[in-house]
Write a protein that binds this DNA or RNA. Structure first.
Length: 397
DNA sequence: TCTGGGGTCCTAGGACCC
DNA sequence: TCTGGGGTCCTAGGACCC
């Protein structure tokens, strides 16, 4: 399989170029700026003065993403906004605007689908592509196709896009990071030693903080060091499945195919409170939030056309420890009251002496609702689709 | 001044059935 | 009274990803 890993840089506001900007958190103050927007306007149309500075923010949010200028100060994704405010108090804080992201995400993915149906979703801004069978896809080792996709996306959205090209998904993902933003990187099998082995193990998709720490404990810091360990040794230290996987990954091996339009396994809603709430003392407030979450979740299910039978809740205590409870019903449901009732029973089984900072509701065991009221909308091919394919099929100039 | 929201997959024990 | 497997479902927790 020949794979692409492409990710669009969703954060792109021309008037903010070079300025430290973080996007994230933002429920209160920051939302006021958005309210000034007229129909059809985006963040890019708001004067800078309208936005809060990081130092003016109080709340529990985290950074979703940050400009490269902001990253110079050491702030980055998933960092608490209060901590980021210390590092870079004058950074502009923009609210997240998921409606806008969803829109650009769709244009991004629809564009790629014009080239090939072999696309795997990896969230709003990233996809894998298997371009083995794309006409002209092999030209210049995939670079021609990557360039054409990049250009087309830019013309339609103004967004840049980073692309990694490699023999499999594992390597393509790592390749995409070599040349951000708006770059194209090609990694071949023979580049393993020179390009991949010097990287930290953490760069392997699937090695998180925990596994990285364990690897460090064994003196393994780079992928190259990992590759010196035998499969037997890795299995005895990391278990059969993880050990064998680590061994293959360190040698750049991955035969997982693209997974197409997979059905969701679960759908959930959760919220972190403005202040920690106690199950008894703040019962009314908590109950109202709980009910609202169930209603939103039911709405999501109905809108997306799913019903589920496993209802679950999740809490996070004031000390940040979490717990879950779930219950499987005899029936499939997308009804708010049914979900609320089952979720309420779950909450009763939860230890509730400590205050809560988060409550979530989840529905799993999903099936597609088959009431025939929803007509599957046939996706009409976009005009330029043939042109794009034709361009790839033309002899290289 | 702690740390969002939405997901997936894996593991592991117990229930229950054959 | 003691002793089998295998398979599936349910529940809880945890690691990881975007």
């Amino acid at each position: 399989m020949d794979a692409f890993y492409a990710s669009v840089e969703l954060l792109r506001y021309p008037q903010l170029k070079g300025l430290p900007v973080v996007i994230g958190g933002g429920r209160r103050k920051v939302d006021e700026a958005l309210e000034q927007l007229a129909e059809g306007q985006t963040h890019a149309d708001i004067p800078l003065e309208a936005f809060a500075r990081l130092k003016d923010y109080t709340g529990r949010g985290v950074i979703t993403t940050a400009t490269y200028a902001a990253r110079q100060f050491g702030v980055g994704s998933a960092m608490g906004l209060m901590k980021a405010a210390k590092l870079c108090p004058d950074a502009i804080l923009l609210p997240v605007d998921f409606d806008q992201y969803r829109h650009y995400s769709k244009v991004f993915k629809d564009t790629i689908l014009e080239f090939t149906p072999q696309m795997e979703n990896r969230g709003v801004d990233e996809v894998y592509i298997d371009f083995t069978d794309v006409p002209g896809g092999q030209r210049q080792g995939g670079r021609s196709l990557a360039k054409l996709i990049q250009q087309t996306i830019f013309e339609r959205t103004g967004l840049t896009c980073s692309v990694g090209v490699a023999p499999n998904k594992l390597l393509a993902k790592m390749a995409s990071e070599f040349n951000k933003p708006n770059g194209i990187s090609i990694v071949l099998e023979e580049d393993l030693q020179s390009l991949i082995w010097p990287l930290a193990c953490r760069k392997i998709n699937g090695v998180g903080p925990k596994m990285d720490e364990k690897l460090m404990h064994h003196g393994i810091h780079t992928i190259g060091e990992l590759a010196t360990k035998s499969e037997t040794w890795l299995i005895s230290n990391f278990g059969k499945s993880t050990g064998a996987w680590l061994h293959r990954a360190s040698w750049g091996k991955d035969d997982n195919p693209i997974s197409l339009n997979s059905e969701p396994v679960s759908i959930s809603r959760e919220t972190t409170f403005d202040r920690d709430l106690h199950a008894v003392k703040d019962k009314a407030e908590l109950g109202a939030i709980f009910t609202k979450l169930c209603e939103q979740l039911a709405g999501d299910l109905q809108r997306k056309g799913y019903q589920g039978k496993t209802i679950g809740i999740k809490v996070r205590y004031a000390n940040f420890k979490g717990a879950t409870r779930d219950q499987t019903l005899d029936i499939y449901t997308d009804d708010a009251a049914t979900i609320r009732q089952a979720a309420g029973l779950c909450l009763k089984r939860m230890p509730l002496t400590q205050k809560l900072r988060l409550l979530g509701v989840r529905v799993g065991g999903l099936i597609k609702k088959s009431d025939d009221t929803k007509v599957e909308s046939l996706s009409t091919p976009v005009e330029s689709s043939d042109d794009l394919i034709a361009q790839m099929a033309e002899p290289a100039s």
